[in-house]
Write a protein that binds this DNA or RNA. Structure first.
Lengths: 243, 243
DNA sequence: AGGGTTATTATGTGCAGACATAAAAATCCC
DNA sequence: GGGATTTTTATGTCTGCACATAATAACCCT
């Protein structure tokens, strides 16, 4: 009697097998519908396992996922409670310029406007937390969609961290793609603001008084600075994030 | 002999116990350092378990995490391979306006500029995928940091989905906070662009020709439209994302 | 009553073993 | 040779069980 193993759950519950993802969904639903009130404790894993007719580990997997997503807060012995005001996150898939433009149905091309090894201006030094006397590669690239200017990228690359880029042919692979393929990063910051086109107007084919989106991104690999990029997008363009 | 249970790993490996998070970190490191080449297959779970001196389930937990993060791609029978060009994501903690301003060290306050039940303009109907004849609440709120204009929020709320807001006192809890507490959402879109201040200049205390960041957000709960918000930030402000 | 020690409890993580599932590889049959 | 079928293999998931860890709750002693 009951010596059978591995025939999944569905003893107490009257339904299909669920599984940990199913349990996660049910619990998420209970949080949203306030079956579990904001800020309140929910039953412990053992009780939930009994309710769902599964092992505690299965419940644990589901709850850990919801905790990681910010909807539950778990503390040993204290139990698991519903976060009252979850701080929700929007995620931006960082666009590979070529892919972003081709996804728009346009033909991608780019022009390397500047390529020089130069001492970084103070703002760049500060943003990357550089030491004195670091040598950087400075590249300015214009990216076009169907031959229409789409974005100008002004980028500084730390040669001490990524020496190989000095020998790379950046007229074949643009700096953006070269770095994605050859310089993984472990940390970074990204900032997104509005500015007048100003001096970029010429490249972007708009007037100096047009408003453009500016994205600044800095990356490091285990603390070693890699690159700082400032991207000016053409006036019409906006970033789409997913909630 | 060997009837002892639950004394953790560290047989084959010469080191400390690791654990699944440790294994995840080691594997992440091997990916970054190209010990596993981009696009290549990595050893299967059984072999890795042997290498790390742990159970297969422990390796599985680690690899699933890396797959969810987009660094590995796993397919049954085919095995696990390193994603060649991982599409990395930046995440934006959606700011609760009050908290965002107080984190800046400023005193938060707000003024409700408009509050009316009105038929939505076509663009709002389209953005929320509304049916004809839906009643919406339209609120315009000015948020201030130390009494200086920080952001103007122009918001439409679908009364059929969130009827309770019609009776809410939005001069106590601003619409932003009220919705966070009372209207959970399951899906949404968010868009971020630059625009000239234009008609918002008066509220924001800048000129009509200044560039401002505009964030548009729409949310639904299981397909039912909740709200559309358009936020115009003061010229200096930018969004900071985490990589 | 107060303060320190001990028990209790919920989560965190681990293990071995089993079966499920998908997909590639090998095989068979016409 | 080509198409359909079977085998093999790697991942996906679940079950029980055990111990680790952290933090609250209970206790005890002065």
């Amino acid at each position: 009697m009951n010596s059978d193993t591995a025939q999944p759950q569905a003893e107490a519950a009257g339904g299909p097998p669920l599984g940990w993802q199913g349990i996660r969904d049910v619990m998420m639903d209970r949080i949203r519908t306030r079956h579990y009130a904001p800020g309140a404790l929910i039953p412990n894993e053992t009780d939930l396992a009994a309710e769902f007719g599964c092992a505690r580990a299965t419940v644990n997997r589901a709850l850990q996922e919801l905790a990681a997503a910010g909807f539950l807060e778990r503390r040993r012995k204290a139990g698991t409670r519903v976060v009252a005001e979850p701080r929700r996150k929007a995620t931006l898939e960082i666009p590979l310029i070529r892919a972003a433009i081709e996804d728009l149905g346009a033909a991608y091309s780019f022009r390397l406007l500047t390529r020089e090894v130069a001492p970084p201006p103070p703002e760049v030094r500060a943003a990357l937390r550089l030491e004195d006397g670091a040598r950087l590669l400075h590249v300015v690239t214009l990216h076009l969609a169907d031959a229409v200017p789409h974005m100008v990228e002004d980028r500084w690359v730390v040669l001490a961290t990524v020496p190989a880029i000095e020998a790379a042919d950046l007229t074949r692979d643009n700096p953006n793609e070269w770095l994605v393929r050859n310089a993984p990063y472990s940390e970074g910051t990204m900032r997104c603001r509005a500015a007048l086109a100003g001096a970029m107007a010429g490249h972007l084919g708009c007037t100096a008084r047009d408003a453009v989106l500016v994205v600044e991104r800095a990356t490091w690999l285990d603390g070693a600075p890699i690159t700082l990029a400032r991207q000016h997008y053409a006036p019409a363009y906006g970033l789409t994030l997913a909630l």
